[in-house]
Amino acid sequence: MRYKTVHTMNNLLTAHFRHLSTSEKILRILCIASVFIIFFVICGIISSLLYYSAPALKQFGLSFLFSRSWNPGTIQFGALTSIYGTMATTLIASIIALPISIMAALYISEFSHPVISRFFGTVIEILSAIPSVIYGLWGLFVLVPVMSSLVQPLLQALCGSLPFFKGALNGLGILTAGIILAIMIIPFTINATRQILDKVPSEIKDASYSLGATQWETIHALLLRFCSPGILGTCLLGVSKALGEAVAVAFVIGNKHIISLSLFSSGNTIGSTLVNEFVEAPDKLHRSALIELGLVLFIITVGVHTIARLWLRKINVVSGVE
């Protein structure tokens, strides 16, 4: 493997240059240098996160992942609450966002008039360009009051006996964070799903319509069948986006290191903990534990993202769904 890498570099640097003029050599060198920056960043992220999380790794070992105590006062750090919060918020976001996005994409791509479709295209474009800090701000000042005065009391009244809907109705918490995340990934998944839908050859759709199928019959019996692997991949990509989101969640999740079944309870995610504590972390071990959290987040997110990409590539959706 190592031999091969060296060999490749030799190739890059010598064999290719033999017959080239100076300007082309410069172009090539610049391009290759830029490519090396990309590899430098990947290697740098992995090695520096490992290096700086070493103190925490040494101190807590594997129990870091399974301990639910996070206490800078007593210098006890465990990632379980953050991992739980990340998973829980992402799960809620996926449950809300994925069906809505797929439905909306079906409407925009298949049902609607071209003018309406273009209109929604612009809407989705704008929504996906709005940064997370603004979603967070909106969540804190607009969504949280609605949650505390309307949604949470309603849910509690309807199914308050369930453990999921217990606790104080202050509007913050895992459910609110999940909803904000859902709103944030909807434009992304709509776009990605539309790209998959648009890959269906129009002749196939024409053939279905010429057999006398209605639009929904064509979608249900043909398109979804044709596209479901691709849509699965885009859903996974959406999930990986939700996992890595930090700032918007930090606004509304309440930021407490606890695990509670209740969706109204405050919690934290890996991203929100980093955003909240990193700058103020005075203690070296605290900082190291936070960097280890970052490493965990990197592994989870890149893992899901890579699985999604490999899957999309396997089913031949190569290009830029991301």
Binding site: I38, I42, I45, G244, A246, T301, V302, H305, E322
Partner: peptide, 21 residues
């Protein structure tokens, strides 16, 4: 593929990396 990995990396992690760098 390397670019793919980086585009899947949360920007907060990139921030952490530059912090250490």
């Amino acid at each position: 593929n390397a670019c793919g990995i980086l585009s899947g990396t949360p920007t907060i992690v990139t921030g952490l990396f530059v912090y250490t760098l």
